[in-house]
């Protein structure tokens, strides 16, 4: 069976914070994901969570979901800072 790479990575983070002092565990997971996971990955994590596909998720990940920042709408099209129309 193909493993769910995203959930696998979230669980890896949870595993590390399992040994953190009580109170710092789910916060550690949430902080880490907020700091290092780009919006696409966080969106995918929320998609699984919102759809109830959580059976493979480490309890600490589930506990952390509240504190994980929900990404805003996907990055809009049309790049800023590229003013020269002659190059379009």
């Amino acid at each position: 069976m193909e493993r769910d790479k995203l959930v696998y990575m979230a669980n890896q983070i949870a595993k590390f914070f399992e040994s953190a002092p009580e109170g710092a565990r789910s916060k550690g997971v949430a902080d880490h994901i907020n700091k290092f996971w780009e919006p696409r990955m966080r969106t995918q994590l929320f998609e699984r969570f919102d759809a109830g596909r959580t059976s493979e998720m480490n309890p600490l990940v589930l506990e952390a979901m509240d504190a994980i920042r929900r990404p805003e709408a996907p990055q809009s099209s049309g790049a800023p800072n590229q003013g020269d129309p002659s190059l379009a």
Partner: peptide, 18 residues
């Protein structure tokens, strides 16, 4: 460079800034 810049713009217009 103009080939590359046009591609970058085209891709960002089609698929988004990211």
């Amino acid at each position: 460079l103009s080939f590359t810049a046009a591609k970058i713009k085209d891709i960002q217009a089609k698929y988004g800034r990211g």
